[in-house]
Simulated assay, not measured.
Amino acid sequence: MADSEYIKIYTGGTIIIQVIKQRLEDAGINPVIKDETESGRLAGFGSSLTGQPEIYVHESELETASGIVETVISEMETN
């Protein structure tokens, strides 16, 4: 996503990605999830790729999205 108006705000495990994604959507932000492992699996390449999913948001939503990510991470650490 180089040279785009989208900025990566988080890279991590699938479960926390899904929690962050839901919170962003609840706030009216439409994140883009990039998951090369899942894409490879769906294309028939098996699970040889070991990357982690990433969340991108539009640069105009960065401040709000960053606060949501920080909140989710904080909640996960306390549980």
Rank of each mutant, 00 (worst) to 15 (best):
M1N: 10
A2C: 00
A2T: 05
A2W: 05
D3W: 11
D3R: 11
D3Y: 13
S4M: 02
E5F: 05
I7C: 02
K8A: 06
K8C: 09
K8H: 03
I9V: 05
I9N: 04
Y10S: 00
T11W: 03
T11S: 14
T11P: 01
G12N: 08
I15Q: 12
I16L: 15
I17W: 00
I17E: 01
I17V: 10
Q18H: 09
I20M: 05
I20H: 06
K21F: 04
Q22Y: 08
Q22L: 10
Q22V: 03
R23E: 14
R23G: 00
R23A: 10
R23W: 05
L24S: 01
L24R: 02
L24Y: 06
E25N: 02
A27E: 13
A27H: 05
G28A: 00
G28T: 01
G28Y: 01
G28E: 00
P31G: 05
P31I: 02
V32N: 05
V32D: 02
V32T: 09
K34L: 12
D35R: 02
E36R: 08
E36C: 01
T37H: 08
T37K: 15
G40Q: 08
L42F: 06
A43S: 13
G44T: 09
F45C: 06
F45V: 07
G46P: 09
S47D: 15
S47Y: 08
S47T: 11
S48I: 11
T50Y: 12
G51T: 15
Q52E: 13
E54S: 14
E54L: 09
E54I: 08
I55R: 02
I55M: 03
Y56S: 05
V57H: 04
V57Q: 03
V57A: 03
E59C: 03
E61N: 15
L62Q: 04
L62D: 01
E63R: 10
E63Q: 12
E63D: 10
T64D: 14
T64C: 04
T64V: 13
T64N: 12
A65C: 07
A65M: 08
S66R: 14
G67N: 15
I68S: 11
V69L: 06
V69C: 04
E70F: 13
E70I: 11
E70Y: 14
T71Q: 15
V72I: 09
V72T: 01
V72R: 00
I73N: 02
I73A: 07
I73V: 14
S74M: 07
M76W: 06
E77T: 06
E77D: 10
